[in-house]
Amino acid sequence: MASALIAAASIVLPTLAHAQAAAPAPEHTFTSNIGFASEYVYRGIGQTNRKPAVQGGFDYAHSSGLYVGTWASNVSWLTDGNSTVSNSLEMDFYGGFKNTVGDFGYDVGLLQYFYPGTGYGNNPNTLEGYVAGTYSILTLKYSHSFSDLFGWVGSRNSGYLDLTANYELVPSVNLVAHVGRQKVNGNSSDGASYTDYKLGVTKDFSGTVVGLSYVTTNASSVWYTNLLGKDLGKDRVVLSITRTF
């Protein structure tokens, strides 16, 4: 009897394990996130003048690969030293499609940056399209602006190309390395274009991710020093904490 039970278990248990592994992914997935950063830095450029940022968003994903989402953060780059502008918030709205073909993942979509406020010169709101491909630890992404880029006059059709490597050092601890090139159109001297770099590490504590990174750029201080005298492209260390629900 004991041998029969053992034999039966050897048949049933693998079957149950296979059934669990083959369980289909949910058709609809809703997630949210909230985070804190010692400074909001985007594409290597400071958005909060070396001050902290509170951030968060909501996402919906369909099993087909379609997704939409929104994300927001406090910002100060539009108002720092400029008393005519009233703004303290960036809101992002995005949607796209992502899937995999064998070991290769791809992602295409649109992203609208929205800065509610008044007193702007050229409108900072920006619409970008993007396409990304992922293989193993590497992701290559290109973003293309269909409007002027963040208020740069005549900068429509600017592009940002970036390569990111995400390598798991040990379970739940990742090394992140990044290089990106921002091309800003409409500037004959090419002084507004630059390259940014980031090297960091993240640790996942059961859904709470803590990150520490070093960020730097070769952005010209002539173009990226704000009216308060702060060089927004200068190197810095950024601490972040993000919780996903």
Rank of each mutant, 00 (worst) to 15 (best):
L228Y: 07
A4I: 09
V173S: 13
G35R: 00
A61L: 06
G233V: 01
L111T: 04
V170P: 03
F150P: 00
G119H: 06
L111E: 03
S88M: 03
N33V: 00
G207W: 03
R50G: 08
P26H: 12
K230L: 10
V153A: 15
I45H: 00
K51A: 14
T195K: 02
W71T: 02
V12M: 11
R43D: 09
G200A: 13
S240K: 03
G229Y: 08
Q55V: 10
S88V: 00
S189H: 09
G200T: 05
G35D: 03
L138K: 00
D162C: 00
S155G: 06
A2Y: 13
S221D: 15
G95Q: 04
Y194C: 07
Y42L: 14
A22W: 02
V75P: 01
S213I: 02
N187T: 14
G81Y: 07
K230F: 09
H144K: 10
D196V: 06
K198W: 07
F36S: 00
G44P: 03
H62M: 05
V170K: 06
T134I: 05
S86H: 13
L161M: 15
A17S: 11
Q55R: 14
H62N: 11
L228V: 08
G129C: 09
L169K: 07
V75Q: 02
Y60I: 04
A72D: 06
T100G: 07
H18D: 14
G207R: 04
P171K: 15
K183M: 12
G133M: 05
A37I: 04
T202Q: 04
N185T: 11
L138Q: 08
S136L: 13
L212I: 12
T217L: 08
